[in-house]
Amino acid sequence: MSTIGIINYEIGNLRSVEKAFQASGTKTRWVRSPQDMTDLSGLVLPGVGAFGDCIKGLRAIGMWDAVKEWVAADKPFFGICVGYQMLFESSEETPGIEGLGIFKGRVVKFTDPKLKVPQIGWNTVAVKQKSPFLNEISDGTFFYFVHSYYPQGVDHSIAALETEYGVTFTAAVTKGNLVATQFHPEKSQKAGLQLVKNFVNLTQKS
């Protein structure tokens, strides 16, 4: 059985991420340094809390370059929440701190004064792409979001799911063997587990 690595830089609730992947029929391993990456079939980058803290955390465990190289080689990768936001160039949340810059775009805050921020709860997606990552996911599927920021200026060619919250924003991107979501699949019950399973299936094929 293949093993999926989950990058662990001591942030928030990672236990649920681990359990969601295990429930989808794969072994998992904590990745606390690049040495933990041998023989992985996929890599997961979770992220909770502030953008700057996550960037610092990722650098502190020496995974900054490792993530960039992994993605550049188009190996299976799953980014979640701030692990999604970090793929872009920068964030309004922590000005002056560079993101991974894998995709064009800047992470900005919801500004509509009528909105409750953070957006906390279940919101629907609109499907913008055909992708094996999105198997069984359709327009109107609910996922669980907890965030105050979203990426702006995302290239249409990678935008996979869109969500409305005052503005229409990109809730997930896919490119090659990469998928990344603003919402938490590990907290999105059946729909979330389906997305995780789609990813796991793909790693087992490749």
Partner: peptide, 29 residues
């Protein structure tokens, strides 16, 4: 948390940042 893939909140008697960390590590969101 190991069986319910949904958001979980814990309350009651949490007094320090370490108490909070313990709950988040246990699987609370």
């Amino acid at each position: 948390a190991d069986q319910c893939f949904m958001p979980l909140t814990v309350g009651g008697g949490l007094r320090t940042v370490d108490d909070i960390r313990t709950m988040l590590r246990a699987g609370a969101d």
